[in-house]
């Protein structure tokens, strides 16, 4: 057997304080935000989904190269990143348009004409659900319930609710997206969260541990005192 039959074990040494790994595709500010996000979690891997969203904010989708960067940051293999990412509908391992138009056809929307709206969308955009227009601008998808069922049929663009749509209002919406008329309200695909956290973790983990042991002790004392009172009452 050749030595390639034994893959090299994953080098997990970086997590033990090795040199800062170099990134090839995540850009400056995004990479900084990525490191801030990782610092919020007790285990780096927990930042995987937030980092995928961040990467999509930069690239629009999860390219193989950017998944390598995410793996580097989290001390995982690229396959581990892909393995998780491929499970989730919002994480795209193929390019999508700068506007992702999601039409919900689940029960409440179905009862209010969602299938007909989706058919209309497919014919006006000239793509089937799941497809991207020839100019690469718009991707149409059929969505499961988007928790906006009071505005049925519910449509989201880049996960911003745009309210119940008719065939006519849908055409207007598409025209507005193409002309940029709604750019302030609907950022390009991937921008999940325009409000960043302003502080790092504030409760220091050691301080918290100390507080908690003090509280556990106080709780024990209160429990003992309660028991004494109960015993007194029973005795009286």
């Amino acid at each position: 057997m050749s030595s390639t039959a034994h893959p090299t074990p994953v080098d997990r040494s970086r997590s033990k304080g090795g040199p800062t790994p170099s990134l090839t595709h995540l850009k400056g500010a995004t990479a900084t935000r990525a490191r801030e996000l990782i610092a919020l979690y007790p285990e780096p891997r927990s930042a995987l989904i937030p980092l995928c969203h961040l990467a999509q904010e930069q690239e629009g989708w999860l390219s193989p190269e950017i998944m390598v960067d995410i793996a580097t940051l989290l001390d995982l293999t690229p396959a581990e990143v892909l393995g998780t990412a491929s499970f989730y509908d919002m994480l795209h391992t193929e390019p999508v348009g700068s506007h992702l138009v999601s039409v919900c056809t689940n029960i409440a929307c179905l009862l209010n004409g969602a299938m007909e709206l989706l058919e209309h969308a497919e014919s006006t955009l000239g793509v089937n659900a799941g497809g991207t227009t020839a100019d690469g601008a718009l991707t149409l998808e059929e969505a499961e319930c988007l928790a906006g069922c009071d505005g049925a049929p519910c449509v989201q663009v880049n996960h911003r609710y745009v309210g119940a749509q008719t065939a006519e209002s849908f055409d207007q919406l598409i025209a507005d997206l193409r002309s940029g008329a709604r750019a302030a309200e609907i950022p390009t695909h991937g921008t999940l969260n325009r409000v960043a956290r302003t502080t790092g973790l504030q409760a220091d983990r050691d301080q918290v541990a100390n507080e908690r042991s003090a509280m556990a002790e106080a709780q024990g004392q209160r429990a003992a005192a309660a028991k004494d009172t109960a015993a007194d009452k029973a005795g009286a």
Binding site: M90, S102, A147, H159, R160, Y161, T191, L192, N193, V195
Partner: peptide
């Protein structure tokens, strides 16, 4: 849920 873009903000 990730689809709550405004909610997350």
């Amino acid at each position: 849920r990730g689809e709550f873009a405004l909610g997350l903000e």
